[in-house]
Design a protein around this nucleic acid. Structure first.
Length: 474
RNA sequence: GGUCCCUUCGUCUAGUGGUUAGGACACUGGGUUCUCAUCCCAGCAACACGGGUUCGACUCCCGUAGGGAUCACCA
């Protein structure tokens, strides 16, 4: 049977890294078996729905290259792919359950339910609806919730990640199948849909593990084969004390992209958060993941989200890019002052910046002095640990000597380096002093690429002009 | 509290009865005739605890502790 996996988020907000990892793994499982990866929108809670989040979800998936084969916006043979468009299907399955005596109308009022709960709490025992199952429930007319009539027992099932899990009968209860607003609950809808859509692998977050006994009971009542289950451990927040959630600042995937993170870095980072291939490989491309990923090597415990590691990985992928590719990716990150400069000049600047970029967003801070006149700040000179030993007169004279030599120099990186070296001899200064001074006087930045490369790219005219400015201002 | 799950350097992890417990991030030091970054080298640093089983346990079993998830007309 062809492998079919799905990612089934509810459109209640943005997609953060925890959610995207589940999607990525489901995608990998399907694709490495030449199967299909399906996106299904679980929009059965109209109250919590957030406008625009469905579009956001699909954009996030696409931005990381997680392409689904069937979904609400592209259709497919098993549609519709939005639960709110499948209401009649749930009705049909609900009727089946009623006819077989496995579902009944819940006729209690909210107040009565509340009283049951409080009583259970007072008696220090878990509340179970099935303890209050009515003898002769009224016929279900859709105006009240429809409940599953469970037959409590112990289950043992296999989870691809957690292994064999045994559950206790007491957690099986008469949960709600259909809400009084006509929508199914997740508990009911996902099982129906997975069956209707021929889903073979259910890959989802660990939070559903505790509901497994109820799901297993429902599969039985519905006479359905169970799919393969794989519950993903949660990605924990940076403090490691709870699952990463939107409330504690979990960033949206698209936000990372906007902040200059490469999709391939995000994919590699997310995949290796709780998974590895058993070798010492630390970084994976999507292609490699497709070859090497397997659910049985996914970690059981939750991994913390370590932003430092992501940053390192992002820098790594930036360095791996060809200059042309990097130029394409970084197009929207140039400082505004770069606009009037030619692509070839920008590319030369980029070549010098590439090794220094941790994110694409670092570009302006690293390169602005190539495009605009930097703001001078004499404190850079006066507080520099080499230069503060020199008087302003000494600095001026050094700068004048440098200006003179550079004026006569040929203007290639190699020639400039020769000139610089001669300057070292004629002035008797150490590189740490002379080069630092010239660097600051021409860039007004705390650091830059190698001095000769920087000057070569800056151009003779600008270099000399900036030196002159400093000489005159001293 | 009930139920289920988890526990190797600060972090991500390798490890399936006998290893100097390996790698990576981070951090520290050094090198690459200047800064920052890259790159290279070195260093720091872990088997939660207590009992078993065994000639021998990080590895198997049982406890304890700690952590997480879940107990909705949310998914």
């Amino acid at each position: 049977m062809a492998v079919r996996t799905r990612f089934a988020p509810s459109p209640t907000g943005y997609l953060h890294v925890g959610g995207i990892r589940t999607a990525l793994f489901a995608y990998l499982v399907a694709k490495q078996a030449n199967g299909a990866f399906i996106l299904r929108l679980e929009d059965t809670d109209k109250a919590r729905e957030v406008a625009g989040s469905a579009e956001h979800l699909t954009a996030s998936l696409k931005s990381l290259g997680i392409q689904y084969d069937e979904g609400p916006d592209i259709g497919g043979d098993y549609g519709p792919y939005k639960q709110s468009d499948r209401l009649d299907i749930y009705q049909t399955w609900a009727k089946k359950l009623i006819d077989e005596g496995r579902a009944y109308a819940d006729s209690y009022t909210a107040e009565e339910m509340q009283a049951f709960r409080e009583q259970a709490q007072k008696e220090k025992r878990a509340f179970r609806y099935r303890d209050h199952r009515p003898e002769n429930p009224p016929e279900w007319d859709g105006s009240t919730p429809l409940r599953f009539k469970c037959e409590p027992k112990s289950y043992t099932y296999h989870d691809e990640i957690f292994g064999d899990v045994t559950t206790s009968p007491e957690v099986v209860d008469d949960f709600i199948l259909m809400k009084s607003d006509g929508y199914p609950t997740y508990n009911f809808a996902h099982i129906v849909d997975d069956a209707e859509m021929s889903i073979t692998h259910v890959i989802r977050g660990q939070e559903f593990i505790s509901s497994m006994p109820n799901y297993l009971a429902l599969y039985e009542a519905l006479h359905l084969e169970t799919p393969v289950f794989a519950h993903m451990p949660h990605i924990m927040n940076e403090q490691g004390n709870k699952k990463l959630g939107k409330r504690d600042g979990a960033k949206d995937v698209l936000e990372y992209v906007r902040d200059g993170y490469l999709p391939e870095a995000l994919v590699s980072f997310i995949a290796t958060l709780g998974w590895n291939d058993g070798t010492e490989q630390e970084v994976f491309t999507m292609k490699e993941l497709l070859e090497k990923f397997s659910l049985d090597r996914v970690q059981k415990s939750g991994a913390r989200f370590d932003e430092k590691r992501l940053l390192w990985m992002n820098g790594h992928f930036i360095r791996e890019l060809s200059l042309d590719e990097l130029a394409n990716r970084i197009e929207f990150f140039w400082p505004p002052s770069a606009k009037k400069h030619s692509d070839s000049y920008k590319k030369e600047v980029l070549a010098l910046a590439q090794d220094r970029l941790k994110t694409l967003k670092d570009l302006p801070a690293l390169t602005s002095y190539f495009f605009e006149e930097p703001t001078t700040g004499m404190s850079l000179i006066h507080e520099n640990k080499q230069l503060k030993k020199l008087s302003d007169d000494e600095i001026r004279s050094l700068l004048q000597t440098a200006h003179g030599a550079l004026l006569e120099s040929e203007w290639t990186a190699e020639a400039i380096q020769r000139t610089l070296n001669q300057l070292l001899e004629t002035t008797g200064q150490k590189p740490g002093t002379l080069f630092s001074l010239i660097r600051i006087a021409t860039t007004w930045a705390p650091f830059s690429p190698q001095l000769n490369d920087t000057l070569a790219l800056l151009g003779k005219v600008k270099t000399l002009a900036r030196l002159t400015d400093v000489i005159e201002s001293l």
